[in-house]
Simulated scan of single mutants.
Amino acid sequence: MALPALRASPAALVPPLLRRYPRRLPLLGKPFGGNRPPPAGCGIPAASATTVASPLTGAEEALMGFIAGKRKATEVAHSVWKNVVSKGDSVIDATCGNGHDTLALLRMVADDSGRGFVYGMDIQSSALESTSSLLDESVNPNQRKLVELFCLCHSKMEDVIPQGVSIRLVAFNLGYLPGGDKGIITASNTTLLALQAASRILVSGGLISIVAYVGHPGGREEYDTVQAFASGLPVDLWATCKLEMLNRPAAPVLILLFKK
């Protein structure tokens, strides 16, 4: 069974309430009914009706950009992550690459208490060196301490995550290391094991995010494996979907697995 893909018109992807009442929902960050306060008894405090921003604003923008062919699947993924993780959460970057996802995750979870944490892993030492350098250049020493990098296969993630740690998000960016050896790629068998491990350690309300690349040798097979895994998850425990460009068959596909 194939995953449901977003194939509706752009208008159909906008939540119905936002289409019907575009100026009457305080989540849009606009005044309720113009500059007038909300009517008495509506349940919305007058003081907050004009100040509450929608948590989905960034995701909507990225999604519409993807539909228009102007935003990458990775950008949509980042915007979705921001609506799942919070400051203080623990997350996993299962494929560090050059560190851009690791850095994005760190900025989402790092807080002053030092509770947020990113576990990053990659089988290539060069990828971890690039990730470490990017982090050193981009964040302060206190934030840098909130990332631990492991040179190992993501299928072994359960071996390095401390027992009792609640994982809110596991991110996969499959394929080969950009700028690296294209002969070294993530493989179907270990990616499947990694997905199984991620599904076990993810907390309720958490997300597994996968960007699959189908344009390189082995990429289509790996994508099929990911899709088969996602399609087989029980509907009472998981909600799964994918974003793909139908007229660009070699374009990356974003697959999202939400644990209820």
Rank of each mutant, 00 (worst) to 15 (best):
A104I: 02
R107F: 09
K70Y: 02
I123V: 15
G33C: 07
L103Q: 09
D122E: 12
A40S: 09
G99N: 10
S86C: 11
I67M: 10
P37K: 10
A40E: 15
A110N: 04
G29N: 06
S48C: 01
I67T: 04
R36I: 02
D93R: 06
G33E: 13
K82I: 07
L105H: 07
P39D: 12
V91Q: 05
G88A: 09
R71A: 15
V109N: 07
R115V: 02
S54R: 11
A94S: 06
N98T: 01
G88N: 04
D122K: 00
A127V: 09
F32V: 07
A94Q: 07
R71M: 13
C96F: 02
S54H: 08
A53M: 11
L63G: 08
V52D: 00
V84S: 08
E60V: 05
D122V: 05
N83A: 14
M108R: 09
A68P: 02
Q124Y: 01
T74M: 13
K30W: 03
V80P: 00
M64P: 01
K72N: 09
F32E: 05
L128E: 04
I67D: 07
K30A: 01
K30S: 03
A73S: 15
V52Y: 08
N98S: 11
A94F: 01
P31W: 06
L128W: 01
E129Y: 00
F32T: 09
G69P: 08
E61G: 05
I123R: 09
K82S: 15
V52M: 07
G43M: 12
T102H: 10
D112T: 12
V84H: 03
D111Y: 06
G88I: 08
A73Q: 07
G120N: 10
L106P: 03
E61L: 15
W81E: 04
I92K: 01
L106S: 05
A49M: 03
T51H: 14
G116Q: 03
H100E: 12
L103N: 08
L106V: 03
N35R: 14
G41Q: 07
A47F: 14
S54E: 05
A62G: 08
H100V: 02
D93C: 11
V84G: 02
V118T: 08
Q124C: 11
G114F: 12
T50I: 01
G65Q: 05
E129D: 14
A40Y: 06
C96S: 15
R107D: 05
T131Q: 08
V80Q: 06
G41E: 06
I92P: 12
G97H: 09
K87H: 10
A47Y: 11
G99W: 08
P45F: 12
D101E: 15
H78T: 09
N98D: 06
T51C: 04
